[in-house]
Simulated scan of single mutants.
Amino acid sequence: MKKNISFFFIAICCLTFLGCGAYKFNTGNVGNAKTIQIDFFPNQSTLVEPTLSQRFTQDMQDLFLRQTNLTQVPGGGDLRFEGEIVDYRVNPMSATSQQTAAQNRLTITVNVRFYNRLKEEDDFEKRFSFYSDFDANSQLTGGVLDAALEEILERIIQDIFNASIGKW
């Protein structure tokens, strides 16, 4: 009897792990699409971070190529992304008793146009935005800037992925 219960328990565990392996929440449904085109996203905000456009575009290409089986092409892709960085700003967020900022917030907003040549009803134009807070005594350079950009760009690009391919 104990052998039967042990066997049953092991069988259930194996089926559970095998069943869960079939689902991946970080991949999207690309349908019949085979190629993707991600155009350069220029920085058109009033405050310009020199490396932001290149970093955003490269990070977006990397994520889509990592999480899908699409092939990147320079033109004529089944799925196409274009747009621009429209806002890059730093605002004070909280004050100290001396009426100075205790924390600042970097906010980045990207306007994205998505085109699906195979399913045009999925096309959209949308703005995606996220922020990162940092100590007001810190300069937004070096490691502070890198950490903020990593947090913001990861979130914005994942939101774009979810809106376009993830269908969230």
Rank of each mutant, 00 (worst) to 15 (best):
E125I: 13
A136Q: 07
R127K: 12
N116F: 09
F41P: 05
N4L: 14
E150H: 06
V86S: 07
D123G: 04
E150W: 00
D78P: 07
R105I: 02
T46V: 15
N26I: 10
V48I: 13
T68A: 02
K119G: 04
K126G: 08
Q54R: 15
I85F: 01
D39I: 06
Y131S: 14
D122M: 12
E154R: 09
T100G: 06
E154P: 02
T107C: 02
G142I: 03
D122K: 12
G142L: 08
I160G: 00
T51H: 11
L140A: 03
P42M: 11
D122T: 14
L153P: 02
Y115Q: 14
F128P: 10
R55W: 00
N29K: 14
R80E: 15
S94N: 10
D59H: 01
F17T: 11
M93H: 12
A11P: 07
E121C: 11
I38A: 11
R66E: 14
D87H: 06
T27K: 09
S94D: 07
M60H: 01
G76Q: 09
L106I: 02
Y23T: 10
L140V: 02
P50Q: 10
A163H: 00
D39G: 10
F124N: 03
S97V: 11
S138A: 13
G75T: 15
N162H: 07
F81N: 07
F128I: 05
S6T: 14
F81E: 04
R80N: 12
V73I: 11
Q98F: 14
P50T: 10
R113N: 12
T35Y: 04
R127M: 07
N43Q: 11
F8E: 13
W168M: 10
V110P: 04
F40V: 04
R117C: 00
T68S: 03
Q72C: 05
F134D: 03
I152C: 01
A147Y: 06
I12A: 10
